[in-house]
């Protein structure tokens, strides 16, 4: 643990992306204090303003402040993402570790189940589910979780398979560890770093899925601010008031990029082999360049 903290403090990339990610998370948390206006207050006298001192990002067709809606919208979007990832990570990792470690018929059943869920195009499946259940945040979380866990299950199963045949697992059994202790003390510490990277990078992916759903009007309902839904509303005015979709789009892209890069730098810290590989590649490139020059 100490080793990673030290490495993290020495990695400028990781520090920058962490700070940015924390800021992005804190903005919606402190929305009531940061947002200049009420996100659902309508003001018809000042509708469709492209941006001025009072409304920095402009207003929409019924005069709501875009900036405030973006800040409050983070609450909806990030909360959904948080729940979805919490649910799918717990379920997926539990099933994946179980199937990888136990093997046999348990593994077969779980793997088949994963295959079945993955065979269905996920976005179509989510749209179908939400359409049947009816739009609403709970239903969105449920639908996204139903298809999302497979990735975690597959990844953690593969990681467990690669770890469990190691000699140190047998050695641990000789040290008197019971089966559940082998999983928690030996196998999980060796796969959690990789799963953490997965989780961080999944934030961006899930955000895109959610925005897609909202764009189709399948997640939050007006007047609740939500980024994808703001895109959906602004779409009608793309010619006359482009700021209605430019700013929400930029916010989504910003979040996706930051969390992806955070995952990237996290991998550099947690996976020593990957770093070694990168260093070797750099060395090789340098050598090749020198060869060209000489």
């Amino acid at each position: 643990m100490k080793v990673y903290v030290k490495k993290a403090l020495h990695s400028p990339a990781f520090l920058v992306w962490t700070i940015l990610a924390v800021i992005l998370i804190l903005i919606p948390v402190f929305a009531p204090w940061i947002a200049p206006h009420d996100p659902i207050a309508t003001d018809y006298s000042s509708s469709m303003i492209p941006g001025n001192a009072a409304y920095p990002f402009g207003t929409d067709q019924i005069g709501r402040c875009i900036l405030s809606r973006l800040i409050w919208g983070g609450r909806t979007s990030l909360l959904i993402i948080f729940w979805v990832i919490a649910i799918i990570a717990v379920i997926g990792i539990f099933l994946g570790v179980l199937s990888g470690y136990m093997g046999g018929w348990i593994d077969m059943i779980i793997t088949r189940l994963t295959d079945i869920v993955m065979a269905i195009p996920s976005t179509v499946f989510v749209i179908a589910l939400v359409s049947v259940l009816g739009p609403g945040l709970h239903h969105t979380v449920m639908a996204m979780s139903l298809v999302g866990w497979t990735e975690y299950c597959r990844v953690s199963r593969a990681l467990v398979l690669s770890v469990k045949e190691n000699q140190y697992v047998q050695e641990a059994r000789m040290g008197g560890l019971k089966e559940h202790q082998v999983i928690f003390r030996v196998i999980l510490p060796n796969i959690v770093p990789y799963l953490l990277v997965n989780i961080t990078q999944d934030i961006g992916a899930q955000l895109l899925t959610l925005s897609g759903l909202s764009l189709l009007g399948l997640s939050s309902q007006p007047p609740t601010p939500e980024w994808g839904f703001m895109l959906s509303e602004g779409r009608k005015f793309i010619q006359s008031a482009p700021w209605l979709i430019i700013y929400p789009g930029m916010v989504i892209v910003l979040h996706v990029v930051v969390f992806n890069l955070l995952g990237d730098s996290l991998r550099d810290i947690l996976d020593p082999r990957y770093q070694k590989h990168k260093a070797r590649r750099k060395e090789l490139e340098k050598w090749q360049q020198e060869k060209v020059y000489n």
């Binding site: 190691n166 000699q167 140190y168 697992v169 050695e171 641990a172 003390r185 030996v186 510490p189 060796n190």
Partner: peptide, 8 residues
């Protein structure tokens, strides 16, 4: 080298 869990 492979007898001890790398993170223990």
């Amino acid at each position: 080298y492979s007898a001890i869990s790398p993170r223990m």
